[in-house]
Design a protein around this nucleic acid. Structure first.
Length: 670
DNA sequence: AGACCCAGGTTTTTT
DNA sequence: ACCTGGGTCT
């Protein structure tokens, strides 16, 4: 039992119970991940086979960390044999094995956001809804909701009660057909089709039930309908399921997460053992008290009393700024002051915000002050047009039926195939249902376009056909990607597409960066193939998409992306009416979730928490008067009062100044 | 076909 | 302030 000595009593109880359903209610910072890792280590020590364990985490990063930690606790070999991943990556594994049983082929590709929207548009055009006033994003959301609640198109059509719902259901049906024709799956399909596969092929399900006899789920509060069904099916026979989560940190309701699954776990899994973790190891008590006060306004929750052995700690600062620029400047100054004399690393700071667009102004001020920073997620590298285009080129190699990708790159760089030719192509497809890739090779199409365009198209196809073979036989993946993008004319084409020299060079550089990431993938994985790389690329999450400095740096991200992370010094900016809680949440009646989100933000902080708001903020190019968020009212005055930036800063002591002087003298000589 | 310009809408959160 | 889409001109 020496292994579990590093845990406190309740943690140990959770990690020691290996059989039957277990619910670990773990408040923020109470060592959730620690419990899971130790529990897995304990299983291995008790001769449960690593292959029989499945652990589901919320992000790839968490999965990787967990695998590493188990590796140091037991052995790297055993740790690698445990299946650890997100629901999505697990499902891709499952589908890779048996997807042919539900009518797809193994070389399916995963639709990205842009593809989804394109397919919705195509579907509603085919249904002649294009003149109707239909919001594509809303429909895409509806489709996602259907899948997350395991409603198939037929059921959706039956259940529709009004005209709008009927249309959504019809588009949903069409959308699924289009995806299937193209051998594509969207994100929700990855989960949805696993359920379909298991329900239609009990043998396949049985295989997984027998394989994964022990299941652990992290961040269980964010489980949605499909995911829950998956757990139900897997654990049907032995009920060995351990879920860890915190109902107060449920922040993905809009993505279909159902808090009820954690609130009523004991109804779903009979005789479940419930363990509550209440000792927080992360934050000072001032921070915890503020968090407790904020969250206690919510009614429907498991009551919890977080406490910490750390002292009261620093006061919480709530800063009022005249405008958003001043707020950003304040954050910069506060970081500089804290770092005065190099007392601490930039790594210790995080700046959190409700919506991505708030990062821009912060970035500007950080740049001016030459503070190194990185942005997690957001409009990142991987969403740049040139990257998506390059990926489309690669997807086409793997899955030629992928019309979305072909459509994206057919005329990028310009091959003389303009709107007119595209129109012709679409017309041909109305009667001839083959994929675009086949249609552009038909005489019917080639004779209708200019001779220059024809020649270019034939070259384009010849290059792709050539590389289909090369990718299959050649084992140097990054080199092949480089050659392919060059031969097909894309690498040089970029110089033509983007006229400004500076811009085109930057974009070309980004492509080389992508090729580097292929190289990195190649060096760090065992099962190297283009297909696997593309899957990995598609399944990357926010936390995989850090951008900015490599070395020591301040981290900027949304509160959502900060889930599970901690920093000694945390800034939460933009606590203003309409921003946080977001005005849309007021319409959607989900203020509870916004409050939980604020709770998550507060509980990221270990030692210092600084919350700020601005009285004026630029919106759509116009300055608008802002009102402080009413969430601020729930932080008791004795923990932190509203003050101006000037009142926050303490003048440096003589010693500080002396030390700083010494450094300058040492650097430049006297 | 493609470059260029202007108008209008746009910002929640993401696997 | 920024991006998309539609429209016009070469």
């Amino acid at each position: 039992m020496s292994l579990l000595e590093g845990l406190n009593d309740t943690q140990r109880e959770a990690a020691a119970t290996l059989n039957g359903p277990v619910l670990v209610l773990a408040g923020a910072g109470t060592g959730k991940t620690r419990v899971i890792t130790y529990r897995i280590a304990n299983m291995l020590e008790n001769h449960i086979k690593a292959e029989n364990i499945l652990a589901v985490t919320f992000t790839n990063k968490a999965a990787k960390e967990m695998q590493e930690r188990i590796g140091t606790l037991i052995s790297e070999e055993d740790a690698k044999a445990v299946t650890i991943g997100t629901f999505h990556s697990f499902c891709v594994r499952v589908l890779h094995q048996d997807i042919t049983k539900i009518g797809f082929t193994r070389n399916f590709t995963i639709a990205i956001q842009g593809d989804q929207k394109g397919i919705v548009k195509q579907a509603l055009a085919e249904l002649c809804y294009h003149r109707d006033d239909i919001d594509c994003d809303k429909v895409a959301q509806d489709i996602s909701n259907y899948k997350n609640s395991l409603i198939n198109p037929t059921e959706a059509k039956m259940e529709a009660v009004n005209n709008i719902e009927v249309k959504s259901a019809n588009i949903y049906e069409r959308y699924q057909q289009i995806l299937k024709n193209q051998n594509m799956l969207d994100f929700d399909d990855l989960l949805y089709y696993v359920i379909k596969l298991w329900e239609e092929c009990p043998k396949v399900l049985k295989k997984y039930q027998e394989l994964y006899r022990y299941i652990l789920v992290d961040e269980y509060q964010d489980t949605n309908g499909v995911q829950f069904r998956m757990l139900e099916l897997l654990t049907k026979t032995n009920q060995n399921i351990c879920v860890v989560g915190d109902d107060d940190q449920s922040i993905y309701g809009w993505r279909g997460a159902v808090v009820d699954y954690i609130l009523n776990f004991q109804d779903y899994f009979k005789n479940a053992k419930v363990v509550k973790l209440e000792q927080n190891y992360r934050s000072t008590n001032n921070i915890l008290l503020a968090a407790n006060n904020v969250i206690s306004v919510n009614k429907n929750r498991h009551s919890k009393a977080l406490w910490s052995a750390k002292g009261a700690g620093a006061d919480i600062a709530i800063i009022r700024n005249n405008n958003a620029e001043a707020e950003a400047l304040f954050v910069v100054d506060a970081i500089l002051e804290e770092r005065f004399g190099y007392k601490t690393s930039y790594d210790n700071f995080a700046i959190l915000y409700r919506s991505n667009h708030l990062s821009r102004i912060l970035e500007m001020e950080l740049k001016k002050a030459r503070i190194p920073y990185k942005i997690v997620g957001g409009q990142s590298f991987y969403q740049r047009k040139e990257i998506i285009d390059a990926i489309a080129y690669l997807k086409l190699i793997v899955n030629y039926k992928d019309d979305q990708s072909l459509f994206r790159i057919l005329n990028v760089p310009p091959r003389g195939i303009g709107d007119k030719s595209i129109e012709t192509l679409k017309e041909i497809q109305l009667t001839d249902k083959r994929p675009f890739y086949e249609l552009i090779q038909t005489e019917e199409f080639l004779l209708k376009i200019s001779s220059k365009a024809r020649k270019e198209t034939e070259n384009f196809i010849a290059t792709i056909e050539k590389y289909k073979d090369i990718f299959f036989t050649e084992d140097n993946l990054s080199q092949t990607v480089n050659d392919y993008l060059s031969d097909v004319g894309y690498l040089n084409g970029i110089l033509k597409i983007y006229k400004k020299r500076e811009e085109s060079e930057k974009r070309q550089e980004n492509i080389y960066e992508l090729i580097n990431s292929v190289d990195y993938y190649e060096r760090h994985n065992s099962d190297i193939s283009l297909i696997n790389f593309l899957e990995k690329f598609s399944l990357m999450d926010q936390n995989d998409k850090e951008e900015g400095e490599d070395g020591e740096s301040v981290t900027l991200m949304t509160v959502h992306a900060s889930k599970g992370l901690e920093y000694p010094f945390v800034f939460v900016v933009g606590l203003e009416k309409g921003l946080f809680p977001h005005f849309r949440s007021v319409e959607e009646n989900s203020e509870d979730e916004e409050r939980r989100l604020f709770y998550v933000a507060i509980t990221r902080a270990q030692e210092n928490l600084v919350i700020s708001f601005a009285m004026e903020r630029n919106k759509y190019g116009k300055n608008e008067r802002q009102i402080p968020s009413h969430f601020l009212d729930d932080i008791p005055e004795e923990l932190g009062t509203v003050m101006l930036a000037d009142q926050y800063f303490t003048p440096p002591t003589d010693e500080d100044l002396g030390a700083e002087m010494d450094k300058i003298i040492a650097k430049f000589g006297s």
